[in-house]
Nucleic acid binder design. Sequence first.
DNA 1: TCGGGCTGTCCGAGGGTGTCG
DNA 2: CCGACACCCTCGGACAGCCCG
Lengths: 388, 388
Amino acid sequence: MSATDAAEPAGAPAGGAGPADGAGGAAAGVAASVTGSVSPAGSVRAATMFDVARVAGVSHQTVSRVLNNLPGVRASTRVRVEQAMTELSYVPSPAARTLASRRSQTIGLIQAGRPDYGPSNAALAFNEAAHAANYTVTQAGMRDFDAASLRAAVQMMVRHNVEAIVLISGERQALDIIRGIERSVPLIAVSSEDVGGFHRVAMNQYEGARLAVEYLISIGHTDIAHVAGPADSMDATERVRAWSDTLAAHALPQRPAIIGDWQSTSGYAAGRAMIGARDPAHPLPTAVFVGNDQMALGVLHAFRDAGVRVPGEVSVMGFDDIPEAAHFAPPLSTMRQDFSGLGRDIMAVVLDVLVDEQKAGDRAGRVSEMVVRESTAPPRTGAARSAR
Amino acid sequence: MSATDAAEPAGAPAGGAGPADGAGGAAAGVAASVTGSVSPAGSVRAATMFDVARVAGVSHQTVSRVLNNLPGVRASTRVRVEQAMTELSYVPSPAARTLASRRSQTIGLIQAGRPDYGPSNAALAFNEAAHAANYTVTQAGMRDFDAASLRAAVQMMVRHNVEAIVLISGERQALDIIRGIERSVPLIAVSSEDVGGFHRVAMNQYEGARLAVEYLISIGHTDIAHVAGPADSMDATERVRAWSDTLAAHALPQRPAIIGDWQSTSGYAAGRAMIGARDPAHPLPTAVFVGNDQMALGVLHAFRDAGVRVPGEVSVMGFDDIPEAAHFAPPLSTMRQDFSGLGRDIMAVVLDVLVDEQKAGDRAGRVSEMVVRESTAPPRTGAARSAR
DNA sequence: TCGGGCTGTCCGAGGGTGTCG
DNA sequence: CCGACACCCTCGGACAGCCCG
């Protein structure tokens, strides 16, 4: 489909580098000039409301009314204007519209932190949804966020008259900073914590983590460790809470969670720490619930290095289900999160907010789905274990 | 003389708050509202050029001259104006500026394809570099790109007066489509192929791949297979070419490359295919050069499933050095690519282009750096091999 | 007295959006 | 219903006046 009509009137006749060969300038060209007026200089100027008005035989305000779907335009007139717009392939100027109305049909997207699988996919889906809803998105991404950068980004967006600012970042700190910045536009943030001051979109981290731990318990584990994401991550906090609560609900003992930074290397360190602490009195746990798949990979690596068999001696459960997880050694059991859905949810909330800021609700529904692969299994019985 | 009395006769507060009105009452009032004027309604209106002019005791043109760094402004005046701008924290209105000058200080970024590690990091670094250079970036991301979506994105950007369009996508097809779209702004694309019609930024894929294969040969391999990225990927094509050329340069035999889609699962399929095709007449290769780390993970998985030891029986080399690669089983030898550097390169080219479209050169310098870990080793000798 | 460097006034754009009549 | 008019905010060209050497 896409390939076929790629042939477009080959641009730049001058400067000489069109689609070199193949493209074959075939295409019936044309269409180019129908689009706008040609100034004496030869450059095409996009059609304006006035051009449309002239062609339709009305005033430019009427064109404006048609454009904004305002009442007070006879149907027949409306049609004439619409035809004129089509004929001239008229498109309103965003700059002029923004200047006059202070509305920009633009959403500001701030992405703070590493471009990991989750955030990247959510941002992409959000982007697609925004464009589908006819919004433009101006983006400010920053790996390291500090108050100054965040403030600069917000101010830049505000002066661009964005209609809403979306924050995709799991870091509590980024959210706190942005919440604190004086701004005149609504803020929609991905946040697992409901601290107020913004519109919230989230996945149900608590429930997802609970399901994971319940599963491990259901297959017989009673000593379940946890490798958590960074303390500043709201998602990590929720998962820790769910892990802890669930163990408590089953009256199971719990070890202190080991804190990582979402990266594999920290998972490796966590794995080594568990192994290093091992002694007759403190055996390895029989299962480890890891905060994300990347860290789980590191844990797997540490165990492999130490000759700890997974899931033979220890079961490992991840979180996220990144595409690679199915190919870890062993293939990782994990909780799948629908990041694309999250991205679409974000835009849905934005749209709600733009209609009525008061009535807009949050969206925190999506629950992860369990994917059982080969890194989890029932624990060996005491007998079998010592018989090793 | 202080700026305060520069003012024009205080106009009646009646007429609303346009630059047209007297803007009187300045005297003491100025200091009060440092940030902007307060309209009768109470909402703060951002300061305009006229406000700055009044405070600095000059005309708005002079402010404009200072703003645009035009000559013909006495140094002392310039300073006064700048102080006034600071005092009012004046920031020019992007919309008005764009409307009047047709320049927007905005770069359009089109990202086509999956948000993988490489593109995501390059895009992030580009974004940071753009903001550092005081440019705004409006983004259009699309997982699946077809001519229509791409065209829509370009048109949207053009009508927003972006000063350049950046395309981050390894897909030849996306590039071809965009090249073909009539547009009035320069296009800067990440592309490993120099087909003309746009400004090019790239990493030296050929050289990186050549180094990888040379390395395998240097440690004794003579039967080196290749698992390539999709045919539509320019990077993949370059790597295939380098692999093939290098084998030829050493007069080594070569197998047909197996095509994947960059994802682990396709790597797994490729691995199985190699194993399945094995028979006494067609033994496994002693080394596999894989197009990226994700697919290498899949290959490792397939080999593990089949009991093929890595690097004992087959060495595996990846490409990219994603953060997880160090934790694969075994830790993967690979070629590290500096995606952040690529992102910065993109912005550098954009800046060059904006200064002088003709003189701007391409940037295709960066070569990957080899990272040897545990998935590669010299092949076992024939004797040792059969002795297994 | 004259030539130049700074600045100010005076518009016309730029492409729309409101309100009023 | 629909047209007039004012306004959003900035750019930039035309032109004149001022100060200074």
